[in-house]
Amino acid sequence: MDKDISRRLTLWLLLTPFILWMLLLVVIPHIDMFLLSIREKVGPRQYEMGLGNYAEFFGEPFYWNTLARTAIMSVLATVLTLIIGFPVSYYIAKIARSKQKKILFMLCLLPFWVSELVRTFGWMILLRETGIMSGVLQWIGFVDQPVEMLYNDITVVMGLIYTSMLFMIVPLVSTLDSLDDSYIEAGYDLGGNMVSVMREIVIPHAMPGIISGCIVVFMLTLGNYLTPILLGGKSSMWFTGQIYTQFITRFNWELGAAFGFLLLALSSLMVWGGLRLSGQTLASTVAKS
């Protein structure tokens, strides 16, 4: 009996910080945000309940275009991160020997010792008109005048891939690590070639890792503010930038809150869709990786 009580007490004590965190920093602000988003300003200090803020979003093409563009580019960045990250993870998990493995893993982690802001400025130093890349290209005579490599979509996507690569590699390496080498050997032994072994053995096994990596990368990318603004500039048209503008520049908290909820809805919808398409459940991807 005593044991039972102490066990329950331990559980609750351990859960308390988490519950407080969720309640104070996630649930309450979101309720408040939601209330804010369904409030319309009709006059100075006069508000009415209504869906006007959401209507404004759908009524103004610039807003929903920005959201659609953000979503598409996030999907693109996620897919490219997977395409680049998979072979890297496969090499780390299956081909590299144990000592190499640690070093390679370390190398993936290394850039994260520097803050995201500084890393992004690093890219700016490299890519701006008077930057190193431009200088090198001129020096070797490839171009005859400075080139601006910042402020375009390719640079933004590249920056997003760079920022989120680790979050793809970690779950992929851990699922691929759990794939016994003998499965791959058996696949080859039974007559499979590289393509069929990858498609029928390695990828099905790695699916939970692929999905959880994709979810994390997609969410981080969709909600990223720094990289698109710094590398894409004013023309980046990133939805988080739009939210920032509403809250800070235009002081229209109501519309900003509505945008926040739309972004949340979109990311939940896309994650749900991704899980459905791949036949995975959220629990299986989280538990396996």
Binding site: D180, D189, P204
Partner: peptide, 12 residues
């Protein structure tokens, strides 16, 4: 053909 110690049956 080969039989592995761990059987290496594809779990999925």
């Amino acid at each position: 053909s080969m039989v592995f110690q761990s059987y290496a049956l594809f779990p999925h």
